[in-house]
Amino acid sequence: MKRFFAILTVLVLSLTPMNGCLAEGESALGLLSPQGVSEDELNDNLKDILFNVLPFSGYRFFDTFNSMITALNSGTIAGIETDEYVAGYIFSHLDGFASYTTDALPEYHVGYSMLLREEDTELRDRISGAIADMKADGTLDRLKALYIDDCIAGKEPEAMVPEQIDGAETLVVAVTGDRPPMDYFSADGTPIGFNTALAVEVADRLGMNVQFVSVDSGARAVALASESADVVFWSVLGDFNNWEKASEEDQPENTILTEPYLTGIECYVVREDSSIAAD
């Protein structure tokens, strides 16, 4: 009898989060923790949007995209804030999710940039220059089509293989594997995605070798400061007609950003079975 109850308890415990029956009544929004600022310092604008414009009951912060998706999957939260590319990846890989839009919401943009140490201004300018060239000659569009659009459409892209140049400087790029289709690991364990492809292309244009190190997304700023990596990927939210100003909010101290190589529309992915999707 004892054994029967033990097995029953294990079954209940293991199945409860799986089918999302805890979801009822929970309608919080998942957000990625801002890395450079505390929750209290979040700007009032965001708080206003969260509490007055969006229909969510509250918000929860997550350190990694992965944990946020886990919470979304299990129904702990009703929706997440992300950008159009990640949302596309979610829609193409999971069933039961919808996009939430409201006219009351101002259109925000996410900008994808590279973050460097403050003293590396020269390297930053060279990278920004390479990005500008890539924008001009259509390379960025080609990479985006291959690594974002095709990937969302279900085609598994091939990872770009960096060329090794003898005697050249090495650009150490931190990847997190935590933001498909921008930055993730392919099934055979190689870093892949738009960000990595971009890093390979940039290094190639600068005549540098590229080396990827895998860093937890929460440890990106530390990795940069301790020189474990020269470049990390950083996304900033805001008004990209004036990107230098927009980036101030959650940028770690003693760092500089390159010009965004890609911008996307901020959007909300919600569970189809949640009260928010039903509205």
Binding site: S14, P17, M18, T64, F65, N66, S67, I69, T70, N73, S74, Y89, I90, H93, L94, A174, G177, D178, R179, P180, Y184, F185, S186, A187, G189, V213, S214, V215, D216, G218, A219, A223, S228
Partner: peptide
């Protein structure tokens, strides 16, 4: 050890969860 750029079992599991978007099953 994933915090210090090492790809151990936990890290691989996390990476796989992100790629496949099946965190619960992958973690199990």
């Amino acid at each position: 050890v994933g915090y210090v750029t090492i790809t151990d079992l936990t890290r691989v599991i996390n990476n796989t969860a992100s790629r496949t978007m099946q965190p619960l099953l992958t973690i199990c």
